[in-house]
C-alpha cells in the first residue's frame, strides 16, 4: 500500500458465502482492511451467474453478468473469496458479453479489476504474511477454477506459511477435482461421490486435522462427505484461518451431540 488514499475494494461475498457461511466474508473483509483497503459491499449483488452459464442458459448468465457489472462499478477492485466466481468475472464475463457493443467494454473493465481473494492479497497487495496463529496440521485443496483459470497455487501457501504453529501437509492429488462441479454433483451423484470419496481418502491419509481451500462449493462438498464418513477432520475456508476468524464452528468435524 503505497498511496495515501486507501484502495476502495468492493467485496463480492458470493452467493454461497452469503447464504451458508458469512464468516468467510468477514474474514475476507478483515484481511483486506488490515492490508489497508477500504472495504464495502456493492449494492445489488446476488450471484455471478455461474449456474446458468455452465448449464447452457447463456441468456440468464448474460443478464446476471450485467447486473454484477453495474453493481461493481465505482470500485478500484472487486475481490471475491472464490476461484470459480473470480474466474467467472475475470475470464467468462468478457466472453459472455463479447458481442454486446455496450457491455463488452464494461465487462473487460470489470475483469481487469476483479481478483480472487488470495491472489489479490499476494499478487496485488504484495502481502508477505499474516499475523495470526493456528496450532496444528492442515492440508490444502486447490480448487480447480482458482488453480487453472487464475493461477492460484502458491499464494495461499505463502500466507499459510506465515501462520504461527500451522504446518501444511500436502495431498499428492491436491490439484485433482473434488467432484463438486456445481450442478454436476447432483446430476451425476455417483461419479461425484467417487471423486469426493477419493479426495477424503487423501485428506485422511495426510493426518491433517484441518482441510482448507478457497472455494466454498468445494469445501461444502468435501465437508459434507467427511461428515457423512464420521471423520474428525475440520473443514474451513482458508480466509477464516488467515484472518483468525475461528468463532464459527468448522464446516464439519463437529462431534455428533
Amino acid at each position: 500500500m503505497t498511496g495515501e488514499v486507501p484502495l476502495r475494494v468492493g467485496l463480492f461475498p458470493t452467493c454461497l458465502v452469503d447464504l451458508f457461511r458469512p464468516v468467510v466474508g468477514f474474514a475476507a473483509a478483515q484481511l483486506l482492511t488490515r492490508a489497508g483497503c477500504e472495504v464495502s459491499l456493492p449494492e445489488g449483488l446476488t450471484c455471478c451467474g455461474q449456474p446458468s452459464y455452465n448449464s447452457g442458459d447463456r441468456r440468464s448468465a448474460q443478464r446476471l453478468a450485467r447486473q454484477v457489472i453495474s453493481a461493481c462499478e465505482g470500485f478500484d477492485y472487486i475481490v471475491i473469496p472464490s476461484g470459480s466466481c473470480g474466474g467467472m468475472l475475470r475470464h467468462h464475463y468478457p466472453e459472455l458479453l463479447a458481442d454486446d457493443a455496450l457491455w463488452a467494454p464494461r465487462a473487460r473493465q470489470l475483469a481487469e479489476r476483479s481478483y480472487e481473494l488470495l491472489s489479490f492479497l499476494v499478487d496485488v497487495l504484495k502481502l508477505e504474511g499474516v499475523d495470526t496463529a493456528f496450532p496444528g496440521t492442515a492440508t490444502y485443496h486447490d480448487s480447480c477454477s482458482g488453480l487453472r483459470e487464475l493461477g492460484v497455487k502458491t499464494q495461499p501457501r505463502k500466507l499459510l506459511a506465515s501462520v504461527e504453529g500451522l504446518a501444511l501437509t500436502e495431498m499428492p492429488g491436491a490439484e485433482t477435482c473434488c467432484g463438486f462441479g456445481g450442478t454436476f454433483c447432483v446430476k451425476y451423484p455417483a461419479i461425484s461421490n467417487r471423486m469426493v470419496s477419493d479426495k477424503c481418502t487423501e485428506a485422511q491419509a495426510t493426518g491433517a486435522k484441518l482441510l482448507l481451500a478457497g472455494d466454498l462449493g468445494c469445501l461444502m462438498n468435501i465437508a459434507g462427505k467427511l461428515s457423512r464418513l464420521g471423520s474428525p477432520i475440520e473443514v474451513r475456508h482458508v480466509a477464516e484461518v488467515l484472518a483468525g476468524r475461528l468463532e464459527v464452528p468448522a464446516l464439519c468435524g463437529r462431534a455428533d451431540p
Binding site: 451458508f20 458469512p22 468467510v24 457423512r228
Partner: peptide
Amino acid sequence: GWTGHRDLPAPTGSTFTDLWKGGAR
C-alpha cells in the same frame, strides 16, 4: 442428489448481507 452421498453443512442462520448491513464486521 446431494444428501444421498453426503451431508449438507447447514447455514449459520443469517446472510452475510444482512449481517454486514447490520454493522457486523
